[in-house]
Structures are given as C-alpha cells and as structure tokens.
Design a protein around this nucleic acid. Structure first.
Lengths: 189, 189
DNA sequence: GAAACCATTTACCAAATGGTAAAAAGTGAT
DNA sequence: ATCACTTTTTACCATTTGGTAAATGGTTTC
C-alpha cells in the first residue's frame, strides 16, 4: 500500500487524513499466473495498482488470434477505462502474466474518494493522462519499423518485461509470429 | 468559436460569463497547406482546436523516413502535450495537411482559464483523456494485421481523412511503403 | 528419472512487402 | 494548351515475413 501512496503523491499532495482514507478503501488482491483481472464482454468493476507482477491487456482479432495490446508493469494503474467509466462491456482481457499482487478499489469506493478528497480528481486525471500518453508513445514508434527494429525498441521500452513473459506474447505485441521473433533473437546474438 | 464552445460543453457545464471568458482568450488562426503548427525541437507554446482542415503529427525515424504518427480531424484539440506541459522540446512536427482554421490559446491564456474557471480543470482533463484514449484505440488494432487489413481499418477509423491527404502520409501512418499501399488499393477495387 | 506437457527453435517453402526505377496521371502556372 | 512539377501507379526482382510442421529444450507431476 505504501508504494501506491508514494506513487500518488508524485502527482499532488495529500494530508495524512486523506492518505488514511485512501489506504482504508484499497484492498490487496493476489492474482495467480494467467488469472484474469477483468474480462472481455464484462463491465470493469475495479481499478487496480500493481505492486508486484506483470499484467497484459489482450484481445482476439477477427482471425481468432490472441493479440497482446500492451503490458503493464509494477507501479502502474490497471483499468479498462472505457468500460469502467462508461459501464459498457470491455473489449479486452486484463490478465496477470506472472503472479501478481495488486491494490484494488471497487467502483463505489473509487468514486467516494472523488467526493471526499479535494484534489483527488486532479491527481487521478494526471495519473491517467500520463499512463495514456505513455501507451501512445510506446506504440507509435513501433509501427513504421521492420520486425527486428521493433523488437530492439521493445527491449528499450519494456526492459523489465522481456525475461518475464512468454515469447508468444511479445510476438503478438509486435505484430509478428513467434517463429519470426525467435529467428530475430537468433540473428541478434 | 461556437464549435469550440459546443465541443467543450459536452464535457461539463459552464455559465455564460465563463464561456465569454474562454471566447475572449481564444484567437482564430489560419494555416496554409503544409504549414507547421509546432515543430520538433521547439517547445509547444499553443493549444489549438481545429475548426476546419486536417492536421497530422509526424516525425523522422532513424532511417530519415518521415512517419505520420496520427491524423487529427475537425473538432479536436491539437497540442504536443508533453512539450506544452513540461516545456521540453517537442519530438514531432504538427503540420496542416490541408488548409486549416483553428482556435488557439497561448500557454499564458490557457493557464489563466485554469485559475479563473472552476471546473475548467475537470473539463480539460476529460477532453484530453478522451483524445488520448482514442489515439491508443485507433493505433492498437492496426499492429497485428497485414497491410491490407490495416488499410481497411484505416478507412473505418478515419473516413473523413482518406480523400483529403496524400497517399504517402497514409502509407507511413500504416507502416508500409506508398507503393504497397497503391498496390493494395488496386487489389481492393 | 520417466512421462506428459508447454514453450521455443529450426527448417522449408509460399506469400507479402520493400527497393529501385520508370510510366502514367494529376495539378498549377504561364 | 503546354510545360514543369508532384503524386500515384506499375513493374521488376530482392528480401522479409508467414504458415506448416517437426525437433529441441524446459518444467512439472508422478
């Protein structure tokens, strides 16, 4: 929980009473490897913050292939925003890639924080903007490159992820087959 | 200007006095075809709202190729957020693809709105979150597809853009050569 | 340790895309 | 209408990537 409070405080200041309130609302959740945090077709009901582990967001394209949209690492929020905020069914799965430990807030508790903590609104919006901007900035530079360059850029973008997730997840994130990625790895060495 | 006020009011309510203040701060800017709204290496000093025309954000990759990161259409904000907010040099060019008409706010005026209009903060954050989310959601589904599918999806995503921008811009947005895109167009007909 | 299971690597050939270059089509100016 | 200029299309071949399948390597369970 300490990690979450520290993270939040980077984006704005809170007094002890407010911090206690936040701490009281959040509960710890353990996720097993491959377990889903939220699922496509269902409405996202929680906001999470990753203390430990790696999570990915994935979906199935119209060929039925499983595509990793992005990875989320420690010290980041996890939430299907569109689904959570608009209460529409999610279009993607959020899945623990490794074992994970999270702080989670129910929608009700999360909203209560907006009503009771002045400035919570501003902090959350900053957090979310930053996270979204990062997603855009990580994805964009990959598009116009060949597969090898994409993989090299992936190594820069997600240095803490490479050795903790299956090759096939990275391949689908990069938009190539796992055979191609394996070949690329071989050529790089 | 009316269009901008209408756009903003979708995200929160404002009284007439507040609307007048916003109206007073914004000035109209005309951009010629190919003219830059902001440039790589410089600090973004304005926020814009497109009344008319199409704008693109582009950069040069390490092979020196010009890559279109995304297009921005009418009724959307234009701003290199990272540069504008943190006052760091921008990494991309923002360029009018067609002739354009925008409402622009200087950094000083934009910030004054935060100080004088209660709730402006919340509105702007909603606008920005929505725009960023759209950028992610438009880009992600393209990655894992072959070139033809990417182009077909592009047509869905940017129906108002296809016939108003050069083929080469679309090709670089999709991460393929313009020859490939031309071939794809031929095969689709 | 053997068996079963899953992930990764390799190999082979087919298909898609890139690179270079030239032709064709479109645009604007005089 | 012609010329100069830019954009788009086409063609050719080289290179990259995909698809299928099998082999190898790793891990877990008994």
């Amino acid at each position: 929980m300490k990690e979450f409070v520290e993270y939040i405080l980077q984006f704005g200041s809170l007094n002890q009473q407010q911090i206690d309130l936040i701490t009281k609302k959040g509960t710890e959740l353990k996720l097993g490897k491959d377990e889903y945090f939220s699922e496509a077709g269902k409405i996202a009901k929680q906001v999470g913050f990753i203390l430990e582990g790696i999570v990915r967001v994935c979906y199935y394209n119209n060929k039925g292939e499983e595509i990793t949209k992005y990875f989320i690492e420690e010290n980041n929020l996890v939430c299907d925003l569109e689904s959570f905020e608009s209460e529409i069914p999610s279009t993607a799965y959020v899945q623990a890639v490794t074992e994970g430990r999270l702080i989670v807030f129910s929608k009700k508790d999360w909203q209560e924080l907006f009503n009771t903590i002045i400035g919570w609104d501003a902090i959350v919006h900053k957090v979310i903007s930053k996270a979204l901007l990062q997603k855009v900035e990580r994805r964009s530079p990959l598009v116009a490159e060949d597969a090898t360059t994409r993989y090299l850029k992936f190594l820069e973008i997600y240095p803490t992820v490479v050795n903790r997730v299956p090759l096939s997840y990275i391949a689908s994130y990069l938009g190539i087959t796992q055979q191609s990625l394996s070949r690329i790895r071989k050529n790089i060495r």
